[in-house]
């Protein structure tokens, strides 16, 4: 009952703008605390890997960015479904807000992966499974971005990008499986929610903090971008005028 009411209220940009102020600040504070704690912990207090030495510490920025980038794409697909099924304007705002964040995180994951690969594998760029999946993810983001840029009409732009996001999200598991199957040079997944981690706790605890922090950070940036977009779209309405008065 409560959820249903919440869902209907989400249709109102004004309501969302007002309610999201608190969420945004919460995410920002949580992200700041978690990321600072995680980075200091990972850089100075986590033990060095017995094989890779201190270059192992790159994991604490590499894995969170890659994980969150993928989640951001999938949330775009979910927002696309919401846009098609319920015609919720807010969903398009969410897609628009997710795009730059996802592109940045994917690019960061590729960069830190390359920098990590140099001391570990002796090469800046290795065509292995996860590198390719992440690169494909970047191309998927760029594709939606380019499509949005090409369509001037705001409604059609939303629907077109939602369609691509949905098709892309359906394809992500297939792409991931095929690419992983094609070549797996990386160590198997270093962090998973369902399996018992193979790393010692002193190593994965800061990673967990960083992953949570990165999720909070993405939440903060996406919410902030959504709020900017809402103000832009609603600038002729009464409530937006009253907001700044």
């Amino acid at each position: 009952m409560f959820l249903r009411e919440f869902w209907h209220k989400l249709g109102s940009p004004k309501w969302f703008y007002q309610i999201s102020t608190g969420w945004m600040i919460g995410f920002a504070v949580a992200a700041l605390v978690l990321l600072v704690v995680g980075m200091v912990w990972g850089l100075a207090f986590a033990p060095a890997d017995y094989q890779q030495g201190n270059s192992f510490r790159i994991i604490y920025v590499h894995v969170p960015t890659a994980m969150v980038a993928q989640s951001v794409y999938i949330s775009m697909g979910v927002a696309g479904i919401v846009l098609f099924v319920w015609r919720m304007k807010l969903a398009d705002v969410a897609i628009a807000a997710c795009l730059p964040v996802g592109m940045m995180l994917t690019a960061l994951a590729l960069f830190s992966g390359g920098v990590w690969g140099r001391p570990t594998w002796g090469t800046w760029w290795e065509w292995d499974g996860r590198t390719v999946s992440t690169l494909v993810l970047l191309f998927l983001f760029i594709g939606i971005y380019a499509l949005r840029e090409a369509i001037p009409d705001i409604t059609l732009r939303g629907r077109a990008s939602a369609l691509v996001a949905i098709v892309g999200t359906i394809n992500i598991p297939i792409i991931k499986y095929s690419v992983d199957w094609w070549h797996t040079l990386h160590q198997p997944g270093s962090f998973s929610l369902t399996e018992k981690p193979t790393m010692p706790v002193e190593m994965w605890a800061p990673l967990l903090v960083m992953v949570l922090g990165m999720y909070c950070f993405a939440g903060y940036i996406i919410l902030a971008r959504m709020r900017i977009e809402i103000l832009l779209r609603e600038q002729r309405t009464q409530w937006a005028r009253e907001l700044v008065a």
């Binding site: 494909v136 191309f139 760029i142 594709g143 380019a146 098709v167 394809n171 792409i175 095929s178």
Partner: peptide, 14 residues
Amino acid sequence: ALLVLPLFLPVLIF
């Protein structure tokens, strides 16, 4: 090409 080629990748691989 930008939209479609990434989705063609699994077909190419297999």
